[in-house]
Nucleic acid binder design. Structure first.
Lengths: 137, 137
DNA sequence: TTGCGTGCAAAGGTTTTGCATGGCA
DNA sequence: TGCCATGCAAAACCTTTGCACGCAA
């Protein structure tokens, strides 16, 4: 962790532009590599992983671990959430694998509750709720 | 998934006894293998993984995926929770890595809320709340 | 006897790392 | 120029799988 990017490199810019262009989607490191191959851009996979890690540290993207043995996925941070004050939660269906975005004020209260009552500072960006979606349950 | 155990083998019994003896702790597949090596028992790692999977399917143990690139961990199901009706939540500190057990009725309500309002059937066994614990925040 | 469970070894997939080179400031 | 970032390849890591043998029922 930690390594904040200090240099503005071509690779970083391309990566950022791509992630921004697919904001709202969940992208794996492999997706990124495939995209670059498609574009004829040559970016090593280690660079992809290292830049993704930096971007997570900087709060520019979020990282979600959905499942053991499926790759981590990344998502451009929704800037609107700062404006509206809405927290975005993630629900993951264990059956069909769907990842659902959820904005819900009542759920937002649990962060306060965990802090007030249990001294735990919830990181909503990292937390994923597992269960069954409407179609699968 | 699916493969319910049909045979009662020596390996399964030893594994179960061990897991029961460390109920409340979070055990990785590797911990199990190490324990057996210590005991002079010869159990293949594939057996460990396969039995753990069966036990999860049977609801005898739970599986938690805490983090990318840290192994899945398993935990003997707390039988009391069926009696008391308390749901056990898991809080994971992103800084020190500590995994905290939490019994909280208010939190239990979020399962109902997700179901009533969002048609999502929460799986509290799988869901891990990320954030910062008291000491680290 | 039947067929599930086991053990070993090998494969699989994701992510990390070592090291020399390249490029930003 | 100084140092960080990059790229390649190899390694590390956890987990799954193929196959022959063993063992529970």
């Amino acid at each position: 962790m930690n390594s904040r990017s200090k240099y503005k490199t071509k690779q970083r810019e391309i990566l950022l532009t791509y992630l921004e262009s697919v904001a709202g989607e969940h992208i794996t490191a492999n997706d990124v590599c495939a995209y670059f191959k498609e574009q004829g851009e040559n970016i090593g996979q280690s660079t992809v992983y290292r830049q993704l890690e930096s971007l997570v540290d900087e709060g520019i993207i979020n990282k979600y671990i959905i499942d053991a043995n499926s790759p981590a996925c990344f998502e451009y941070v929704d800037k609107d959430s700062h404006v509206t004050g809405h927290t975005c939660f993630h629900l993951k269906c264990e059956k069909c694998g769907k990842l659902i975005h959820l904005h819900c004020d009542e759920l937002s209260d649990i962060g306060d509750h965990l802090y007030d009552e249990h001294n735990f500072r919830l990181d909503t960006k990292r937390t994923v709720f597992y269960g069954l979606c409407e179609e699968c349950s």
